[in-house]
Design a protein around this nucleic acid. Structure first.
Length: 441
RNA sequence: GCGGGUGUAGCUCAAUGGUAGAGCCCCAGCCUUCCAAGCUGGUCGCGCGGGUUCGACUCCCGUCACCCGCUCCA
């Protein structure tokens, strides 16, 4: 990497994301809305590629993980059982003097700050991270529902249905990708903390005595995924072992990424014990135990969870990929120019191959190549401006390969493949092009 | 949510209480046959809402958004 990942890099990245259509503010023409972000053409391609990679690794390439796509709105009792509603239903007040925050129901005197004794307090406010809505045409308290705050709860709720339909025995997992919503107090750091975001979660159900074995297994799988599939460097990620565990957890790690604004959680591997399943059993009155035929016993499954923030993965990938180097230029009065490059792994790059004619006169022939390439890869055709400019455009969106059809191509049926990272070029026969990329992508 | 800062074109930034400018980008044409070249032309803007004023991008109030610090993060 030619540049350091300083906090100022975020500004450049946010600007690049907007300019080139990766990510920009939601509802921008109305002034934007805090904590919500839209993905443009390249951002969508990146996000879908990352999702697809995860789904393939976690579901499609395994016999013991099944897919689920549940609703965003569930029965309100789901969130009662999960603890989300009670945990964040408190009235809170802030002290304007010492900046501390307190639960009103725990204060001796509701008008005095327990920390510094000041009476300069904000009005008590309800503090619930769950997004509230109403189901049906009547907006009253009897019709309140919530947007899910995490995608895993419906997995627990649907456990038996999935297990029976898929004829799975323990141990096995259920995976889901989807939106989750949290009324974050303070969305910050671009898309890192948003109010609407995508999660990729897998809940692995096993017998209590095998729990740590599976916990260690998934921990290794997920860490290796970050290193090998996402190609994050050793010094870009670290493992954070939880010392203070959540009420439900027996063991937990976070995989953190070194963002320009500091270390931030990308993914968690959490041992959730039998807490969720027991709670849903208690609140629903339905038996959620598993019957182990081999040992003729009933038990509540223990859950090992892997939970990834998809938007955070996108952001981490952008931070990881961003680089600038000095390149030669033909601009008058300058002999060097800054080249912005996104070093995406080829399999997740929004555009994997860009096809372009050296001259507009070669447009038709080049377009025919493009039509072949796009059958197999995310591709783009560009005919505007000179060839150098088009290479730089592709560098900036992280396209690993550019294919150029030139005047010689008509004679020798070969095209130039230009590499993003090295700017080197290969001469490749058109009929071998598919195989050439199959080897590289 | 608290404190501070910032909002002018897609981006980076000017200017002015009296019709808003540049560079880059983008588009078209010419030229150019492998790394943002050159020439010509073109598109696009004062975050939003009030107020003061003959007149507000400029001054005042509010609001929204973004950035920094604190706080929060089951």
């Amino acid at each position: 990497m030619a540049i350091e990942k300083t906090p100022e890099l975020m500004d450049k990245l946010v600007s690049l994301c907007k300019r080139r259509g990766f990510i920009f503010q939601s509802s921008e023409i109305y002034g934007g809305i805090n904590g919500f972000w839209d993905y443009g053409p390249y951002g969508t391609a990146l996000k879908r590629a990352l999702e697809k990679l995860w789904w393939h690794e976690m579901v499609e390439s395994r016999m013991n993980v099944e897919g689920l796509d549940s609703t965003i709105i569930c029965h309100p009792k789901v969130w009662k059982a999960s603890g989300h509603l009670d945990k964040f239903g408190d009235l809170m007040t802030d002290c304007r003097d010492c900046k501390s925050r307190h639960r009103v129901d725990q204060m001796e005197d509701e008008s005095v700050c327990p920390n510094c004794g000041s009476k300069n307090l904000t009005e008590p406010r309800e503090f619930n991270l769950m997004m509230k809505t109403y189901v049906g045409p009547v907006s009253d308290e009897d019709h309140v529902a919530f947007l899910r705050a995490e995608t895993c709860q419906p997995i627990f709720v649907d456990f038996h249905q999935v297990r029976i339909a898929a004829r799975q025995k323990l141990p096995f997992g259920i995976a889901q990708v989807g939106k989750a919503f949290r009324n974050e107090i303070n969305p910050r750091n671009f898309t890192f903390r948003s109010r609407e975001f995508s999660q990729m979660e897998m809940e692995f159900f096993c017998a209590g005595e095998e729990d740590m074995q599976w916990y260690e297994y998934w921990k290794d799988v997920r860490i290796n995924y970050c290193k090998e599939k996402l190609e994050f460097a050793e010094d870009e990620i670290r493992i954070h072992e939880h010392e203070q565990l959540a009420h439900y957890a027996k063991a937990a790690i976070d995989i953190e990424f070194k963002f320009p604004f500091g270390w931030g959680e990308l993914e968690g591997v959490h041992h959730r014990g039998t807490w969720d399943m027991s709670r849903h059993q208690e609140f629903s009155g339905e038996k959620l135990e598993y019957f182990d035929q081999d040992n003729n016993r009933h038990f509540a499954p223990t859950v090992i969870e892997t939970s990834v923030g998809l938007d955070r993965t996108c952001l981490a990938m952008l931070c990881h990929a961003y680089d600038e180097d000095m390149a030669e230029t033909q601009k008058e009065g300058m002999d060097k120019d800054v080249r912005v490059v996104l070093h995406f792994p080829a399999k997740v790059a929004p555009v994997q191959v860009a096809v372009m004619p050296l001259s507009k006169k070669l447009g038709d022939e080049a377009e025919n190549i493009y039509k072949i390439v796009r059958e197999s890869y995310r591709s783009e055709f560009d005919i505007t401006g000179n060839i150098g400019k088009r290479y730089r455009r592709q560098d900036e969106i992280g396209t690993p390969y550019c294919v150029t059809f030139d005047f010689d191509s008509r004679e020798d049926n070969k095209v130039t493949v230009r590499h993003r990272d090295t700017m080197n070029q290969d001469r490749v026969s058109i009929d071998q092009l598919k195989q050439y990329f199959a080897d590289k992508i």
